[in-house]
Design a protein around this nucleic acid. Sequence first.
DNA 1: AAGAAGTGGCTTTTT
DNA 2: GCCACTTCTT
Length: 771
Amino acid sequence: MDFLEGLNPQQKAAVEHVEGPLLLLAGAGSGKTRVITHRIAHLVEAHHVPGPCILAVTFTNKAADEMRQRVHSLLGGDLGRSSPMVSTFHSFCVRLLRRDGANLAQIRPNFTKNFTIYDDDDQVSLLKSIYKALGLDEKFMPYRACCSWISHNKSHKLSSQDVYSSAKDHKGSRLAVIYDRYEQRLRQANALDFDDLLLEPVRLLQHDQDLREQYNRRFEFVMIDEYQDTNRTQYDLIRLLSDAHKNIAVVGDEDQSIYGWRGADIRNILDFEHDFPNASVIRLEQNYRSTKNILEAASALVANNKERKGKWLWTESAAGSRIGVYEAVDAENEALFIADTIENLLAMDRGQRVAVLYRTNFQSRQIEEALRRYGRKYIVVGGFSFYQRAEIKDILSYLKVLVSPEDSISLLRIVNNPARGIGKTTTDEIEQFALENQMSMWSAIGRMLDEGAFPPRAEAAVQAFRNLIDELSAEVNKWTIDETLRQILDRSGYRRMLQAVETPESESRLGNLEELLNAAVDAAERGEGVTEFLDHAALVADSDNLDERAEVSLLTMHNAKGLEFPYVFIAGLEEGLFPHTRSIESGEGMEEERRLCYVGMTRAEKRLILTYAKFRRKFGGSPPERCIPSRFLKEVPAALKETLGRGMDVTQVDLYSEQHAVRETVKKNLYTGQTVNSVENINQFFTERGIAPVKLPAAPLPKPQQAVAVARPPQVRKKPFGAGSMIRHPKYGRGQILKREGDGDDAKLTVSFPGYGLKKLIEKYAGIKEE
DNA sequence: AAGAAGTGGCTTTTT
DNA sequence: GCCACTTCTT
């Protein structure tokens, strides 16, 4: 196959580039992914480079998956072991440490390849514990702020000693102490935070010459996607990996650099030619995505930035509609306008995809409410992810403790959850003891039991907890992941605790745990071990579960990077919201906001509509505040804009009185792993309230559904359900069994639920009954 | 020790 | 308006 066919001259040049550094400046919609995948295929076929010698790195799992798939289909089918390595920075680094990280123990105390990963919730818990030991509270500095302060220092290679010696005041040196303790405690728990995941491979490769040479020998060709968003650590890693061959190709667009606040350094891309002498530079400036008007509007906007390499995108496509601008009275009105206009657009142009983009996640709520009023299906990308749910984190914490009992943060989370009589006093004592003796909480528990340090009642409770963990640990290696999770759920009493309270809330939690079990079964089938399962849970991002098929997607502009939609709305273009107050002060921050706007605008293929509100409430109860239209609106040339008015007026339902109920429903539906807001749901929602939906969708109407049963039926031993039979699920309602696999306790059912799609359920745990 | 009920304090973006 | 944290009650 000829991988050069159908490419424009610049794309062709990039694909044909073989040796030496390459900087590919790829504008929005210029066929970047196509070029990367074709280049990989070309290297393999035309230059006979073995697949595994090529490393391609992206930022999100989603981008990696897509790239992998496209490479595979270009090269024809299953490549097996000869496949190029396509990975995200973080999973590449985790794999490196799990496989070849043993020698890191030489430079990181207590490190083993069994390390755990601390996400930001874990970081906050750790900081709480440190604050407590230092007698501080959140007034000193909010945990989250402290977290990002530490992260900022780490990614800029400033140690706690560096920070301490440059501290200007008492607060500065206090912070340095917190930072220092934080680092100590991570090491003690054999845990790595997200910064460490990148930093430690760099330190290891610098430290271990053999390993560095081994990796250099292997990866002859290295490619980095979204280079504008790399931070200094990632830059170091890239340099180390490409040191021997210097066959480093980076792809990026300085106009789309939007992660400066997370440590991304735009200088990496601006200075590439300086850092890698003899680099070839190729610009991809032809845009294949958007209409001329959209492209010109976005280009004119971003031209207001100074930190650019400068390029001007062009397109052969038609001018298209002008950019719509709508001024709403308030946020409710804005949301209704968007929902209303979506109805009109989709009525004219059926089956198309629409995105509503916004700056901050909380903006989604009102838009959701408006979409529900129209019975329109939508998905929300981001916000809370499945793996952030409390019950999921609880059970995974059990798993983490089994793998690595030194992980005190996970231990702290589960020690009295479900409640087993180890209260605050006892926990504080254990923590105190661990701190004083420089040991983990798990070791402290052992020692304190040996020394008889607990009062009788607490002793019994702690002893029972220790036995539970010991018993589970003894057998964990014999079980598959799903079996381990089941044992945890049963023996810890966690399932019983949820079953005891028969509220919709606990039902929903049980449902989420069921999803987790399904995921575990799938992982076990793929042959994954517990560690891989946990790594996956730590590294999946919210945007990774984006469902391309949804008609309407709601997401932040950050999450929209790399995606495209025929119709795009950008909501909330107001000074203070977008650009955000926190960025307005600094020139750099403003430029990044502008780039973010550029990213949002260039997602649109056919039509782009910008909206803002004259008044907006800061929060629910507070009075609406006057808003100034965003400066970005003015930066779009007048000739490219048109002012839009409201279409139909929608005032049949009192939205305020619905808000609470809607939110509850939204919450429940968000965490099923599948966030599609089904037609059945919406109908049910309105029927329950005796309100007719504004407009019924043309799609086949479902039979009206009864309210979901709340009470869980007593678990009687029942005859197994076979394929074809109808069942009722506590959360998904009526469904038909399509497939049955396995038998007895392990029986797995594939069930089709109208409105929810296919679900894999484990019969024993699903709580289903005959319909 | 564990739940219920009340109150302060703050909201950017996320691998 | 929401969440995390505190105080109150048993």
